[in-house]
Amino acid sequence: MWAFIHKLGSPKGFYAISARWLTPLWLAAAALILIGGTWGLAFSPADYQQGDSFRIIYVHVPAAFLAQSIFVAMAAAGFVFMVWKIKLADMAAAMMAPLGAGMTFVALFSGAVWGVPTWGTWWQWDARLTSMLILFFLYIGVIALRGAFASRDGGARAASVLAMVGVINIPIIKYSVEWWYTLHQPATFSITSKPAMPAAMWLPLLLMVLGFYCFFIAVTLMRTRSEILRRESSKRWVRALVEEQR
């Protein structure tokens, strides 16, 4: 077991082992998202209050979940990188940051689009949307900081520190924004807090959330593998591997 983990930590071992996970993950992501998406779009019942605009939930909520999870994953990878100096963790962190920013943007966009039929406006300073917006800025900060450093190692360590500082702050920001929201906007109802959804409504949501997570893991894995090849391009095992491929 310990040897297996050790092997996973080295770029070469990780490259070899992760090759087996890639196809199942892509298939699972595609299947879950396709089934959940069609179910949510065509088969689950419309909401009694919001009608069919409610179906946006099936992309909004998974994107929002993933946006937050990716930030936490990024900070965890940064922590592993800083403490144990495992380069692999930093490669993964670097590769997942743009996807996290993209997910945050989609969550914001679908939230704004959902806001038109629900609130009658594109933007409402709703607690969830506001903290999503702040999360978006945090993502941009981490990506920009990494890019601003001339040395890769410096950028990696700076981005790790910022991600960790950000992840400590995210719950504080979330709670303070929620508190602020209840102070200023008590009347409007929040778009995603439903008392009790029937199974036909939440099951596709669950499938979509799982599918998004599989997608995230698959993309991060694939991009980390590419990054390994890029960074280790002068190592002998990479040479041998490329020779084999043709």
Binding site: S53, I56, V59, S110, W114, P117
Partner: peptide, 10 residues
Amino acid sequence: PYVWSAYGAT
């Protein structure tokens, strides 16, 4: 427009 643009963006 709302539902399809949200799904389209995703």
